[in-house]
Simulated scan of single mutants.
Amino acid sequence: MAQTYDISIDQGADFIVSFDFSPRDLTGCTARFQARQDFDSKQPVLSGTSPGMLTISGPHLQFHVPASASTAIPFKGEVLDLVYDLEVVWPNSLVERIVQGAMTINREVTR
Score class of each variant (00 low, 15 high):
14 D>S: 01
106 N>Q: 15
47 S>A: 15
32 R>W: 13
25 D>G: 09
39 F>N: 15
83 V>M: 07
95 V>Q: 11
14 D>A: 05
55 T>P: 05
90 W>G: 00
62 Q>V: 14
36 R>S: 12
21 F>R: 05
29 C>Q: 06
25 D>E: 13
47 S>F: 14
92 N>G: 01
93 S>C: 06
39 F>G: 13
33 F>W: 03
48 G>R: 04
38 D>F: 03
59 P>G: 05
35 A>G: 04
42 K>M: 14
73 I>T: 08
63 F>Q: 01
41 S>I: 04
17 V>Y: 06
1 M>C: 08
65 V>F: 06
106 N>C: 12
42 K>Y: 14
11 Q>H: 03
49 T>E: 11
66 P>S: 03
72 A>Y: 03
25 D>K: 12
24 R>V: 12
15 F>T: 00
39 F>I: 14
12 G>P: 01
45 V>F: 06
80 L>D: 04
40 D>Q: 10
63 F>G: 02
34 Q>E: 15
88 V>S: 04
94 L>I: 09
67 A>P: 04
3 Q>W: 11
4 T>E: 07
7 I>P: 00
28 G>C: 05
2 A>S: 12
105 I>Y: 01
90 W>K: 10
77 G>T: 12
89 V>E: 12
98 I>F: 03
81 D>C: 12
68 S>I: 10
58 G>M: 05
36 R>Q: 10
74 P>S: 11
64 H>I: 10
41 S>K: 04
79 V>S: 15
95 V>H: 08
64 H>Q: 08
97 R>V: 08
11 Q>K: 05
103 M>F: 01
74 P>D: 10
33 F>E: 03
109 V>M: 14
73 I>E: 06
101 G>P: 00
59 P>R: 04
34 Q>C: 12
16 I>P: 02
29 C>N: 07
38 D>L: 05
11 Q>S: 00
61 L>H: 05
105 I>T: 04
84 Y>K: 03
99 V>T: 00
44 P>E: 05
14 D>Y: 00
1 M>P: 11
16 I>A: 09
67 A>W: 05
104 T>H: 08
26 L>R: 05
34 Q>V: 11
89 V>S: 09
49 T>C: 10
35 A>E: 00
86 L>K: 02
91 P>V: 05
57 S>R: 13
40 D>F: 12
75 F>P: 09
32 R>Y: 14
40 D>S: 14
64 H>F: 13
4 T>R: 12
17 V>H: 09
47 S>K: 13
42 K>H: 11
27 T>A: 14
40 D>M: 11
97 R>H: 05
30 T>R: 07
83 V>F: 07
5 Y>S: 09
55 T>F: 11
8 S>R: 11
9 I>Q: 03
70 S>Q: 01
9 I>S: 03
46 L>A: 02
